[in-house]
Amino acid sequence: MAAAAADFAASKRAMAYALCKHLSLDPNTISSTSIEESDIATLFSHIVKSSEDEVLKWVGFSSNFVGKCGEQHVLLGNLNQDLSQKSVLLGNGFKPSVADIVVFATIQVFVSHLGENELQKYPHVLRWMDYIQHPKKADKGDTDPSSKKVVSGQKNVGKSDANVDSKKAAPENKAPENKANPTPAKNNKPSGDKKKAQEKSAGKPNEGVADKAPQKTAEKDSECDVSILNIQVGLIRKAWKHPSADSLLVEEIDLGDGNVRQVVSGLAKFFSPEELVNRHVVLITNVKPGKLRDVMSAGLVLCASNQDHTVVEPLIPPEGAKPGERISFAGFDGKPEDVLNPKKKQLDKITPDLHTDGNGIATYRGVPFTTSAGPCRSSVPNASIK
């Protein structure tokens, strides 16, 4: 019962944050007390002002899913059948609706606990869940056959638009085609008003740019969430003591496909090098490489720790997660930055929202760290993650 209650709470938190992300709302306006004390329907109506029957039908589905223990497999079977002929729950296209967000957040934790044999019973649900997290996959036409025409139409429209844009983007001083004299013009010097305009703009190269820069910077800073991190599964192949720091260990971590990183971690007080060898871990791989006490480090192993920092443990990916696989978060599907900028202190803004829940599941704002094999965990519940 306690585990079910914890899963229900995690589902509600995931739903609230995913809906806020989908609707471009500030999740901080929804208090944790409101999330904990509300049921699915009440929490949904608090965030989304909708009375559409089709939307409310799926909200009711989500309420039944978390409220009727023992019937989840029946409900999943119904959902699988419903998704067999479409890409998303509502609408005729590929764009996920609020109904998709609610149902995804509700079933994700339950599905993450299923074994491989059970998962095979719900192929359409799995395909849909993968698409909700990675919507660009629809461009490959891997949905139902009827959707291929839509994709083809979208591609043709894209080509048409590209042709129009390319014409608009053609340089102004390009000589027009002279049908009477097909020899291209060799001297395309601007003249008259056009020349004066170019000289004027050349004298003020940054005019108009400075006014836009602060706004773009502010927008970019406001979008600092976990999606900018490249968090991956890794396998520690070797580990040894740091040559000049008793509290540090050095690990050689395999990220698959021949990609091996050297990472320095502050784990010497909690683990011996031998205990870490052949252990799967979760690490941030787009931090800026640098030296820690003269030893190069190119990653950050994420660990859960209790309040007084007496217990520290690397996060544990589920069995079956492959080295190199990127961790995903429902509702946070942005592209990771190539390398984080230390000056922006992006990690400092994100790590306060990284925690394990009462069951030890690693989460960001209540949304689980998810792999193809399920969520990442720790034996330390209600812990901070850094």
Rank of each mutant, 00 (worst) to 15 (best):
S379T: 15
P96F: 06
S51H: 11
P176K: 07
L235M: 12
N359C: 04
A373S: 15
A202N: 09
N206S: 06
D348F: 00
F61D: 03
A2K: 11
S62R: 01
A304P: 10
G208Q: 06
S146H: 08
H309C: 06
K168R: 13
G208T: 06
S372C: 09
S31Q: 09
S50W: 01
L89M: 08
E172Y: 05
S51K: 14
A169F: 06
G234W: 01
E252Y: 01
D357N: 15
A175C: 13
D338M: 10
R261D: 05
G358I: 01
K167R: 14
E337L: 13
N181W: 09
V103L: 01
F65Y: 08
E199N: 10
Q154G: 10
G141S: 10
K186R: 10
I253K: 01
S160F: 11
P27G: 07
T106M: 04
T217E: 14
P243M: 04
G358H: 02
I47M: 06
N286W: 06
S384T: 15
A105G: 02
W128F: 05
L126A: 03
I327G: 00
G192M: 10
S50H: 04
P314M: 09
H113L: 03
M296E: 14
K12Q: 05
D165M: 13
G258N: 08
N341R: 09
T183A: 14
K168D: 06
G334P: 12
Q133N: 15
I385L: 08
D144H: 12
V157C: 05
E71A: 09
S265R: 00
P352S: 04
S297H: 11
E223K: 15
M15H: 03
E252N: 04
P182A: 11
P205V: 05
L19C: 08
D211H: 04
